[in-house]
Nucleic acid binder design. Structure first.
Lengths: 76, 76
DNA sequence: CTGTGACTTTCAGTCCGTT
DNA sequence: CAACGGACTGAAAGTCACA
């Protein structure tokens, strides 16, 4: 198996899953940020895969999105 | 205030799950740290729930443990 | 082999904006 | 509404000596 997974693409995929769930909930980045008690610009950069998000913030986002944290990290 | 989930215990539980998986694999903290390319003392503090670990390190640990990242975050 | 405190460096995360 | 930039603060990353 491939030894090293590309970290940038890992974060990008995570961001894409978050974005998808957010849109499914019909929330704006601002609204999601408000629900998760995070900064609007931070949520934006997370969705774009630019941030190595910490697990507690991941939990906040999951709660705001109404899903389990493990769901956010489910790879296909 | 509403739904103020205890963050410390969240991290402790995460650490406990990691420890459990590590022991199931019969690895020492040192060995796991080596596999995950992390410091031994860092792994130690994660298992004790003292660190709000970021997703890329979570991914490293999951890979070293031979499980999915989502498995690490599965709550009971 | 593991826990711990102390420590420095890096970057997560906020806040002000503009496009 | 979203992307993005600059500047900043606090927290995560990462390491060490020693119990």
């Amino acid at each position: 198996m491939p030894y090293d997974k590309d970290e940038q693409s890992y974060l990008s995929q995570l961001g894409a899953r978050i974005r998808k769930l957010r849109k499914a909930k019909q929330l704006s980045q601002e609204a999601l940020a408000f629900e998760a008690d995070l900064d609007r610009t931070y949520v934006s950069s997370v969705e774009r895969g630019e941030r190595n998000i910490a697990v507690l913030n991941l939990a906040k986002l999951a709660r705001a999105l109404g899903v389990e944290v493990s769901t956010l990290l489910q790879e296909e």
